[in-house]
Simulated scan of single mutants.
Amino acid sequence: MDETKDLHQGMLWAVHEGAFLFELPGGARDYTRDGIVQHGPWPPEDCARCLLTWFDHGWIEVYVLSEHLNRWAAEEADLIGESSDENARTVERRRARAIFMAPSTWKNDRPEGLVCLAPTDQAPPLDFRQVWLDAVAAAE
């Protein structure tokens, strides 16, 4: 598998697994019967470009787990939407886009790195993963 396709597939799995942004550049591992398969590491800018494509299609969003809400400055509290879910809050789209545009902030000691990915209700189902991958390929 070529590196670009590996990156796109890795980002797709990260979205559906609810990964933290800080985890993405480090890549992922598959544990198979034949051993460990390493995917990545990937440049943060490449991760961001892929995720922004899906974000702009309305297919992904980011949320903050309740245990990380205290990391957000008081002036940014209005950028985290209210939620009926006591365990997480969705980040407002304008702020989410800014986070995607600044992959250098995706660190585990920064609030931006501790947001999680999620597919939206408008996203194609994972069964249609080629639709996701084709959207990124068309944007490049």
Rank of each mutant, 00 (worst) to 15 (best):
Leu52Asp: 02
Thr53Lys: 10
Thr53Pro: 04
Thr53Cys: 13
Thr53Glu: 10
Trp54Leu: 05
Trp54Thr: 02
Phe55His: 09
Phe55Lys: 05
Asp56Val: 08
Asp56Tyr: 12
His57Phe: 13
His57Thr: 13
Gly58Ser: 00
Trp59Glu: 05
Trp59Asp: 05
Trp59Arg: 07
Ile60Asn: 00
Ile60Gln: 00
Ile60Thr: 07
Val62Phe: 00
Val62Glu: 00
Val62Ala: 01
Val62Leu: 08
Tyr63Ile: 01
Tyr63His: 06
Tyr63Ser: 02
Tyr63Phe: 03
Leu65His: 12
Ser66Trp: 02
Ser66Val: 07
Ser66Lys: 05
Ser66His: 04
Glu67Gln: 06
Glu67Gly: 06
His68Asp: 15
His68Val: 08
His68Trp: 14
Leu69Cys: 01
Leu69Gly: 02
Asn70Glu: 13
Asn70Gly: 10
Arg71Asp: 13
Arg71Gly: 09
Arg71Ser: 12
Trp72Ile: 11
Trp72Met: 07
Trp72Tyr: 09
Trp72Cys: 03
Trp72Ser: 02
Ala73Ile: 11
Ala74Gly: 08
Ala74Met: 09
Ala74Phe: 11
Glu75Met: 10
Glu76Lys: 11
Glu76Gly: 14
Glu76Phe: 13
Asp78His: 04
Asp78Lys: 05
Leu79His: 15
Leu79Arg: 14
Ile80Glu: 04
Ile80Met: 01
Gly81Glu: 09
Gly81Ser: 10
Gly81Ala: 06
